[in-house]
Design a protein around this nucleic acid. Structure first.
Lengths: 209, 209
DNA sequence: GTCTATAGAGCGATAGAC
DNA sequence: GTCTATCGCTCTATAGAC
């Protein structure tokens, strides 16, 4: 029987400590830019120990990529499928997703940059397609259309519009901050403004003519 | 006097050949992922020759980054400042910028990923801020607002909305194609649909209530 | 201007002691 | 489980011949 001691807070087991350090380093520098030595230093351990727990850089990376992919896309899919009236839902998603991205601004570029290779597309393992196609959100949209409440739109267009409008300014943050002459608060304020603009724009489009 | 021979087409001088190869490799793999050996191979020359012309990997990279930054953001700023009525302009920009991004799909992730470091922000050299602030587009927006033709909006919000709606699906292309079950044509078709949706959505928002 | 050869540093990974 | 030491490889950059 393994003896597991839960400490008051500060302490963690070594594996978790390495993973947390790796996440921070990978998010900031990407796969190629991150070095195992740097991860080991950040975790306060040795290179050998990183490989002891995770066998290789690639395997360590993959586990962190999967977690963040799920946080990034899984979160929005989950919110889309809540059983809330459409307009309320759109306002709520934009609000909460903006907050999430502001709190985790490195996730989008991390996910999208590593995805460039497109190689294995191991997000298939996460069943994103099935979740979207069979989802409550898709049915909800169809119903609203057939009731004549909104004009027809493919779910994927709506999702791209919501996510793109929130995420793109974060991706381009250095440029946006420079052009708008924003400090950290100024940029946050800019994003707060978008919480109102984006849902209003979507609803203005959806309302039937 | 240097003797310059312009060939029928196929041939180029070595410097241009290296630069073209470097652009292709950097765009696909990013700064860290690209290797000088690979660039030299793609150009059909030797590593030593790459350094002979460009002194270092970083300097070669920077010249390519600047060119693509200008293509990516400069293009939209230029289009924004054409003296065309606002609504026509928005339709035209979305149409042409979508085509540009479809023809050069690697540019956005290349620019945004390398910008992550934010470090030197050497796009300052391109005077993006000044161009936007003193621009015809800004004045045009103000005029339309004071005429009561549109509701008030900051230029930067409008720009982010246009660019984000076009660029984000390209950045997320592997995921979009997987979820939507698109082949290459299917994805292009999806982007063609956005050429209509995005301007309509923006105009629906801008029209005064 | 273009090549070969190599210097010199940093990388990921592992063997082996404790 | 955790460390030190080191192997073998690949990287960028340059020296020097042609």
């Amino acid at each position: 029987m393994a003896k597991v001691v839960i400490m008051a807070g500060e302490e963690q087991d070594t594996e978790a400590k390495i993973k947390r350090a790796a996440e921070q380093v990978f998010l900031e520098y990407g796969y190629e830019g991150a070095k195992i030595r740097q991860i080991a230093d950040a975790a306060g351990v040795n290179i050998a120990l990183v490989n002891y727990y995770f066998r290789s850089k690639e395997q360590l990376f993959k586990s962190i990529y999967m977690e963040n992919f799920r946080a990034f896309f899984g979160r929005i899919v989950m919110m889309l499928n809540e059983e809330t009236p459409l307009e309320v839902k759109i306002w709520k998603i934009v609000d909460r997703y903006t907050d999430f991205i502001l709190d985790n601004p490195l996730i989008p570029i991390f996910i999208l940059a590593e995805n460039r290779k497109g190689s294995d597309v191991f997000f298939k393992e996460l069943h994103v397609r099935e979740v979207i196609k069979s989802a409550y959100f898709t049915k909800q949209l169809q119903e609203e259309v057939s009731k004549g409440n909104i004009r027809p739109i493919k779910p994927l267009h709506l999702i791209m519009t919501i996510v793109g409008n929130i995420v793109f300014p974060i991706l381009a943050r250095p440029i946006v901050s420079y052009v708008g002459d924003f400090d950290s608060d100024g940029f946050r304020q800019f994003m707060e403004e978008r919480k109102k603009i984006v849902p209003e724009m979507i609803m203005a489009y959806l309302r039937p003519v």
